[in-house]
Every structure is written in structure tokens, then in C-alpha cells.
């Protein structure tokens, strides 16, 4: 049996609690006399009961919850992977800055940072093509570090990694998102590694991650309020070794 054609929507609205009281009264009176409409209402309720009793809502996975909680505030637990809590800027005071500088670039790079990655790779390629690899060519970090004074408004740490197989070539000023950033250049055998350093943007994730794009490897991490992106055509294992070596040597 089916509902009266002109009352079908009203019956549904009644079941959904969306009918105003006057129309609800009128319809309820009608339901007493109309088996078709009454059957339709019963059927709607049966479907709902069946549906709701099965509890078909999905619950967010714990890992997702942890990532989102980490983004919102530093007191959240369950941050995956990196020992972020040991970073100096994770200590007590800088809560506000922290809240602003956490994000989720690592797990959804295809959603959040493809444009940035394109810029990074473009910057890397440009530096190789245009004989503009370095503005200051020296393997002495005590020369490279001060060179950035007055050129960028932060102090990028510079590490010497020759013993680890990544000799320092020099430094250069580059641009990301329209802002000047420090680019440190290292070498791995015949390959160049560009390490871009900039103040961590608002909502930057503290989590390190490595990705691939167009044959290049990219690895990023955040430490001391700065965001680091290393770009190279060496394989991602070597690039992660570079990241590890740099973080260890620079204390980041």
C-alpha cells in the first residue's frame, strides 16, 4: 500500500520531525483513516530502525584523530613517528606559536603541498641549469652562515657534513611562496642537494616526511621554528641519510 500522492512528502517530514505542529496534527488525523499513508509511515520507521540499529556510522581511525589533535594543539597525544617532543620549541612556552605552526603536510602531500613541492623542484632545477647554484661558494660553514645575515630574517643553521659524505658547497638566496628563503647546497658524489630553509609557516606539521615527485626526492622536517626541505635527484634513502646527518650535526 502506498501513501496518498499529495501526502508522501508530509509523511516523510513527520517521520523526520520536520512538520510544523499544525500540519502534524492534520496528518495524524488523516493517518487514522488512511491505511496507505499509515503503511508508508510504518515502512519509513522500519527502514530507519533497521538502519540505525546496525550502527552504520564510521568512526574516525585513531591515527587520523591523533594527527588532527596534534594539529590543533601541542597537548595532544599520539603524534606519530618523529621525536617531536624533544625539539626545543616543543617546550612549555611557545604554545601559541606552536598551535600556529603545526599542520598535516606529511600525510596528505597530494592535497596540501603539491604547489610547494613544484616550487621546490623548480628551484632545485633552476639552481642547476642557470649556473646559479650558490651565491656564496665555500665549504666553510662559518662563512655561509653569516652570509645570510641581513638577507633573510632568520638564522639558518649550517652544518658541515663532508665526513658523512655530503660536502657543503655553499649557500644561495631563493624564493618560496614569494618570500626569501635560505638555500644551502650540498653534494653527494656528482649530485647536488638543495636544502631550503624558511620560517615554519602557520600550520606546518612537525612531522618529517619524504616524498617523490617527477624523479626527485623531497624530504622535509621542522625544527626550532624553521621548516627544512631537501630536494635532490639522489634516491630517497640517501636523502634521508642526509636529513639524519644534518639534524644530528646541527642539533635540529
Amino acid at each position: 500500500m502506498t501513501a496518498c500522492i499529495d501526502r508522501e512528502m508530509a509523511v516523510q517530514s513527520l517521520a523526520d520531525g520536520e512538520l510544523d505542529s499544525m500540519n502534524a496534527l492534520e496528518l495524524e488525523a488523516h493517518l487514522q483513516d488512511c491505511p496507505g499513508c499509515a503503511a508508508t509511515l510504518a515502512r519509513l520507521r522500519a527502514v530507519r530502525a533497521k538502519l540505525v540499529n546496525a550502527e552504520p556510522r564510521y568512526r574516525a581511525p585513531e591515527a587520523l584523530r591523533a594527527r588532527i589533535e596534534a594539529m590543533i594543539g601541542p597537548e595532544a597525544e599520539g603524534e606519530p613517528a618523529r621525536p617531536a617532543r624533544t625539539l626545543p620549541w616543543f617546550g612549555g612556552g611557545a604554545i601559541g606559536a606552536l598551535a600556529a605552526s603545526m599542520a598535516l603536510l606529511f600525510a596528505a602531500p597530494q592535497l596540501t603541498s603539491t604547489a610547494l613541492q613544484d616550487q621546490l623542484i623548480a628551484g632545485h632545477i633552476r639552481s642547476l641549469q642557470a649556473s646559479h647554484l650558490v651565491d656564496v661558494a665555500t665549504s666553510d660553514r662559518h662563512v655561509v652562515k653569516p652570509w645570510f645575515n641581513g638577507r633573510v630574517d632568520f638564522a639558518p643553521p649550517v652544518a658541515e657534513l663532508a665526513p658523512q659524505g655530503f660536502p657543503l658547497v655553499g649557500g644561495r638566496l631563493d624564493y618560496l611562496d614569494g618570500r626569501p628563503v635560505a638555500a644551502l647546497v650540498y653534494r653527494r658524489r656528482l649530485h647536488s642537494i638543495n636544502l631550503f630553509v624558511r620560517p615554519a609557516p602557520a600550520l606546518a606539521s612537525p612531522v618529517a616526511a619524504t616524498t617523490h615527485r617527477d624523479g626527485y626526492s623531497l624530504t622535509r622536517w621542522v625544527a626550532g621554528g624553521l621548516e627544512y626541505w631537501a630536494v635532490s635527484d639522489i634516491d630517497s634513502g640517501d636523502l634521508q641519510a642526509f636529513r639524519t646527518a644534518f639534524r644530528k650535526a646541527s642539533g635540529t
Binding site: 581511525p61 587520523l64 588532527i68 594539529m71 590543533i72 600525510a107 596528505a108 592535497l111 600550520l203
Partner: peptide
């Protein structure tokens, strides 16, 4: 997961 993570980032 990706969609929700992106959504929370934007929402935040």
C-alpha cells in the same frame, strides 16, 4: 582519511 585531514586543516 585524506579528505578529512585536509578538511580539518582548512577548517582550522
Amino acid at each position: 582519511e585524506d579528505i578529512v585531514q585536509d578538511a580539518f586543516l582548512r577548517a582550522f
